[in-house]
Amino acid sequence: MIFEGLAEKLQDTFDKLKGKGKLSEKDVKSALREVKLALLEADVNFKVVKNFISKVEERAVGKEVLDSLTPGQQVIKIVNEELTDLMGGAQSKVEYASDPPTVIMLTGLQGAGKTTTAGKLAKKFIKDGKDPLLVAADVYRPAAIKQLQVLGERLDQPVFSMGDKQDPVDITKAAISRAESNGNDVVILDTAGRLHIDEELMDELSQIKAAVVPDEILLVVDSMTGQDAVNVADKFDDTLGIDGVVLTKLDGDARGGAALSISSVTGKPIKFAGVGEKLEDLEPFHPDRMASRILGM
């Protein structure tokens, strides 16, 4: 990897800090510069990094830290804590609605992993003893409906579709009625990928939201996303009020700075991590592990 040296460098920096009995403000600042570079190289958004570092610095150059017995370790602890905190602290999950069906709507940019995640969530719900209905509300992408149907077949679970000539708002409304009459206690809406700046399609999502009032609106984000993650997350959250994030493709070597950027701009928790193409490749998200990954540790 191109940034191979970075993890080592950070470790070095932290080791140096740990080794020092006494730390000066200058020591802390130079260590934080390394942290800053690590975050930028992990694709955390520039502005987010700036804010983050100044926040950590505020805590780290205080008297309690500098005068403590293990100042180096204190600084590392602060960096880790703040990172973990920013990404939603304790792990959260999808709550089932008291009045079923629980309606979950998946949204995001093109190719992020929505349709695959729909299948993965269905599998998880089946395991929980639920009977989910998958809904094909992507009428634009060639063979998007078929893709969801194939996943439905693999799970032996029904897929609701009305072809690609109907309005997605009508499709989702009809799907809820179907779930109610069929007794499906969870409904998973697979929407088409769209750009956050595509007003017409963003408006379509607002209309779906108004029509079916989902219990959970999840934003699906590719963990390889760069600086743009903040623009995307901000716009989807502004438009829809998302409830959480699914971070996909974490099975690669992406450092996943997008996680931090998104949490920082939306304040919404990352709920699940996609770690492969298979339907079982969905895990609960662990902020602390992600913090280490982003820092390359």
Binding site: I2, D222, M224, T225, A229, G252, A254, R255, G257
Partner: peptide, 14 residues
Amino acid sequence: LDATTGQNAVSQAK
């Protein structure tokens, strides 16, 4: 390559 990708694209290309 997806233009929304960050630095991971270097690793992809390599």
